[in-house]
């Protein structure tokens, strides 16, 4: 059976998406709805916006993300997510690993020239 593009994407996201969440917090804290909007924009990284929250919960549990409640102009206070120092270090490590991984995959897929 040939796997569908969806199932391949599901497998590829696992392990990479958490670091994309961390990367989206690099520029400063954000609230869930905004992070979700950014990550689903291209339709590749995340299937549904809801899958962001298990990732955030896991990152918080691992100490890579912290949360705080902040007043909002519209409606009730919002929960903001920020990357921790550990999270920043984890992101750096991932970036190095990802770069060599991506290069090796690209090289293999392109084949010998």
């Amino acid at each position: 059976m040939v796997p569908s593009e969806d199932s391949i994407l599901t497998n590829l996201r696992r392990g990479a998406l958490e670091y994309c969440v961390l990367a989206s917090l690099r520029e400063g804290e954000a609230y869930g709805f905004d992070i979700a909007r950014r990550l689903v924009a291209d339709g590749v990284l995340m299937g549904g916006e809801g899958t962001l929250y298990p990732l955030l919960a896991r990152l918080r549990k691992a100490g890579l993300v912290s949360t705080s409640w902040q007043e909002s102009d519209a409606g009730p206070p919002r929960r903001y997510y920020a990357i921790t120092d550990d999270g920043a270090r984890a992101l750096d490590t991932f970036r190095r690993a990802w770069t060599s991984f991506r290069d090796a995959v690209d090289l293999t897929l392109e084949g010998p020239r």
Partner: peptide, 23 residues
């Protein structure tokens, strides 16, 4: 799921819906 993680997920989703509707 671990209770704390479960509460985090549910809070996050609830917050998301509030934010989306508030926007």
């Amino acid at each position: 799921l671990d209770p704390q993680e479960r509460a985090d997920v549910l809070d996050g989703v609830r917050d998301h819906v509030d934010s989306a509707l508030g926007a």
